[in-house]
Amino acid sequence: MDDHELVRAFRQDGNQQAFAELLNRHQNKVYSYIYSMVMNPEVTNDIFQETFTKVITKMDDTYNEQGKWIAWVMRIAHNATIDHIRKRKRFVDVNATADSDYDFYDRLEDKDASDAQDDMEFREAKGSLLKHISSLPKEQREVVMLRHYHEMSFKEIAELTNVSINTALGRMRYALINLRKMFDKENGKTYEYVRRG
Rank of each mutant, 00 (worst) to 15 (best):
M59S: 06
E21V: 10
D106N: 09
V43T: 13
R171V: 05
Y31N: 10
G14C: 08
Q140R: 08
P137S: 09
L6W: 07
K68F: 00
L108E: 10
E192S: 14
W72H: 01
I85R: 03
I76A: 00
D61R: 11
I133V: 15
V38G: 06
F154W: 04
L129V: 14
A175N: 03
K54S: 05
S128K: 11
Y102F: 15
G127N: 03
H150P: 11
R195F: 14
A71E: 07
E192L: 15
A168Y: 05
K29D: 04
M39F: 12
N95F: 11
Q16F: 04
V30C: 01
Y63I: 02
F183M: 14
I56Y: 05
T51H: 01
K68M: 06
D115K: 04
E42Q: 13
S134R: 08
I177W: 08
N15L: 00
E139R: 06
D112H: 12
G197S: 14
N162W: 09
K29E: 04
Y31S: 10
D103L: 12
K181W: 10
F19G: 05
Q27N: 14
T97C: 10
T161Y: 03
H84W: 08
D83G: 07
A116V: 05
V73H: 01
R173W: 12
H78C: 03
T190V: 10
E156G: 06
R86W: 06
K68E: 11
E142S: 08
N178R: 14
K155A: 11
K126Q: 11
D119Q: 08
S114I: 10
L6I: 04
F91I: 11
S134D: 15
I133F: 09
A168G: 07
L179N: 05
S134W: 03
K111D: 05
A168R: 02
K89L: 05
V194G: 02
F52D: 00
T53Y: 12
R25A: 04
R90Q: 13
V143Y: 01
R173N: 13
